[in-house]
Computed example of a mutant assay.
Amino acid sequence: MQRVTSADVARRAGVSRATVSYVLNDTPGQSISPGTRSRVLAAAAGLGYAPSAAARALRTGRSDVVLCLLPDWPIGDAVGELLGNLSTELARAGRTFVVHPGSPADRPVAELWKAITPAAVLAFAGFSGDELDAMRAAGVALVVALLDPPGELIPQQPAGRRQAEHLTRAGHRRLGYAYPDDDRLRIFAEPRLAGVRAHTATEPHVQTVPLDPAAAAEAVRRWHAAGITGVCAYNDQVALAVLAGVRRAGLSAPGDLAVIGVDDIPAARLAVPALTTVTTDQRRLAAHLAATVLAAAGGRPGPPPPGDDLVRVIVRDSV
């Protein structure tokens, strides 16, 4: 099937292609009667006409696409919620949000952004210097690695800091850290662990905890033998594994070992005991990211970063 063009709309409406362009682009300064405008809109709707994004970018010199590159790692509840909220925020501003999962080994980054000429490129991991130069030379308004310090737009250290603050306020002085066993998650786990370290007087006792009750129980026994009374887990899934390990080891939470997670996934409130966790306001974070993208595309300064209340503790029974 051939693509419906503005010429097809013009023929059906009985007007020129220029008139179709003026109506569909809502061009100011044109004296087009309401009847003509209605005919053009009805013809476009009846034919299922959709303007070409590539042609519009060529005509206006800018694209409405924001490309987000996801690395090759599991997409958890928090990232999924963030992407959904970000898509909604950008759609309200007339932008198209495109998410591409996978690694550069599957398809080079250059092939992706050249194929869709985005206004902005967001990625969780960093870019090489050559990639940055090429995208900026092509007119991409914003190129940002969301988790790269010092200008990271999705800060991770506050989550670990909130965990450690909550445990120390509850009287726990010797803390453990439950590290994920998936090496692809280091990009999140390392800054969260750094946040815990920044708020503890002694080095936290770090152990890798698989999502397996028997292996988690071994980690719990080692923490218990070392006098650890509170554990900050990388995320809620790892925290749930620690709770399962506590039960398997014949201990109790929070009596023998207090546990705090990150993300507030639905299963956290269903755990026994219910899991205390740290959550990020994903809606506010998405609004901030969208405002940053739109400001860059418009050549304006970006908004100030969100306040510390973006990250907070959900208090339940595991601490």
Score class of each variant (00 low, 15 high):
D8L: 07
G14N: 00
R17C: 08
D26Q: 13
T36S: 15
T36K: 14
V40F: 10
A43M: 07
A43T: 03
A45F: 13
G46M: 09
Y49F: 14
A53C: 03
A54V: 01
A54M: 04
A54D: 07
A55H: 03
R56S: 05
A57P: 00
L58W: 12
R59L: 03
R62Q: 09
D64R: 15
D64E: 15
V65G: 09
L67I: 02
L70R: 06
P74D: 03
G76Q: 00
G76I: 01
A78V: 05
G80N: 00
L83Q: 06
S87E: 04
T88L: 14
G94R: 00
G94W: 00
G94Q: 01
F97S: 04
V99T: 12
R107V: 06
E111C: 03
E111P: 01
W113H: 08
K114F: 04
A119Y: 09
V121Y: 01
L122T: 10
A123F: 07
G126R: 15
G126Q: 13
S128N: 08
D133E: 13
A134I: 02
A134P: 00
A141E: 13
V143N: 01
L147M: 08
D148C: 13
E152T: 12
A164V: 05
A164W: 02
H172R: 02
R173T: 13
L175A: 02
A178Q: 11
D183I: 10
D183P: 06
T200N: 07
V220P: 01
R221G: 11
W223P: 01
H224Q: 13
A225W: 11
A225E: 15
C232M: 07
A233L: 06
Y234N: 05
A239G: 05
L240I: 08
R248A: 14
G261K: 03
D263Q: 12
R269A: 15
L275T: 02
V278P: 00
T280H: 05
R283M: 15
A286G: 14
A291D: 10
T292V: 07
T292M: 06
L294H: 01
A296E: 09
P306A: 08
P306E: 07
P306Q: 07
G307F: 05
V311N: 09
D317R: 08
